[in-house]
Design a protein around this nucleic acid. Structure first.
Lengths: 190, 190
DNA sequence: CGGTCTCTTGACGGAGTTCAAAGCTAGTGG
DNA sequence: CCACTAGCTTTGAACTCCGTCAAGAGACCG
């Protein structure tokens, strides 16, 4: 049942069967119902989550009281609050299931132990984090150099169909504008 | 002369003296004059750079022809274009010295070899990348939830004195607005 | 000292926000 | 299986923050 995760790992590094077996003894699986939380503001984050099926999002509530979606995680993505996980400090974010979601849980408690036993896994995470650092730069680039409408169109063609999967108010704040404005953009297309 | 780098590594992992000696045989040092480039748009990025002294910035030129600063790197920071470095594709960015800058160069050519020989270094980069993933989320949070003026004030108190170190037009685009607007913000303070 | 690069200042315009109200949709319980 | 409700989306009008353009003032380097 961890097959999708093992397949994902195999895309970047080579684990022996023994390694894979060892790894699985440290993992567990969890199902989260739509709108339930893996993390809420003020809690300390205890794990890194790999999405097997469904969709998660990270968001925060700003001083005006409205929700700001910071990132989404779909199938084959790892998602966590690295700041809280790493330093074991209270999180500023919520991690919520957008749909019913199945995740593999990689607990902080066993992380150090697993990574020292499996250098290939350390490498796997280093490579993934490098990719997400690259992605973060591109996101900032788009935020700065494209208009709201252009960001929506770009996102829509980069992730076709995803727009249908999440409520528009989540997508609007992810793209950096209001739900009302997104509604007006979409009205223009048809 | 790699002492600041070795000290930085020691903050996160333990290298034996032999490890440190081995590592140094793979590194080299380079000095970049103010306004010179470590990478230009269209080039393939060949190394990861650790700043010993000075200041680097990553920027892009948008379709209107103006420069957009994406990130700064000062003493004890690693800076590169991970997308270009990782996939060996042409970069969309420029990496330029804001001041005369000394860097340690960690070449892509030897990276795989060094990291497999020194698992502790693999771990070091994994930890750093985790921190920069956390920082990227915070940056996006600030971009979304604060006004231009509030972002400037926050940045100014988070990195006191840094504002004096770079031309205002670089800082303005880093914070996501125009030099003219930054000028007006500053006029209000005095 | 002269030229280029950077910063300032002001008038105007536009992309996107805010607020409010009405329309729609989907989940829930009877 | 229908009706009800809560949450989501749409629409419009007024407003605001910030960008654009242009012209001038400093400041730094050769």
């Amino acid at each position: 049942m961890y097959a999708p995760l093992l397949a994902h790992i195999a895309r970047y590094v080579t684990l022996t069967t023994a390694d894979a077996d060892l790894l699985q003894t440290y993992l567990r699986q969890q199902t989260i119902a739509r709108k339930d939380y893996l993390l809420t503001e003020g809690q300390v984050c205890t794990a890194n989550y790999f999405v097997l099926r469904g969709c998660l999002r990270t968001y925060l509530v700003n001083e005006k009281g409205s929700e700001q979606t910071i990132q989404f995680g779909i199938e084959n993505w790892w998602l966590t609050d690295y700041a809280s996980l790493d330093l074991q400090t209270p999180s500023q974010f919520f991690i919520q299931a957008v749909e019913t979601t199945e995740v593999v849980v990689f607990d902080k408690r066993v992380q150090e132990e697993v990574l020292s036993q499996l250098p290939q896994l350390e490498r796997y995470f280093r490579i993934l984090l490098q990719k997400s650092a690259a992605a973060a730069l591109f996101r900032i680039k788009f935020l700065f150099s494209l208009s709201g409408e252009a960001r929506y169109r770009h996102f829509n063609s980069a992730f076709p169909g995803f727009v249908q999967r999440v409520p528009q108010y989540m997508l609007a704040s992810y793209l950096g504008f209001t739900p009302e404005f997104l509604s007006k953009i979409r009205a223009k297309v048809d």
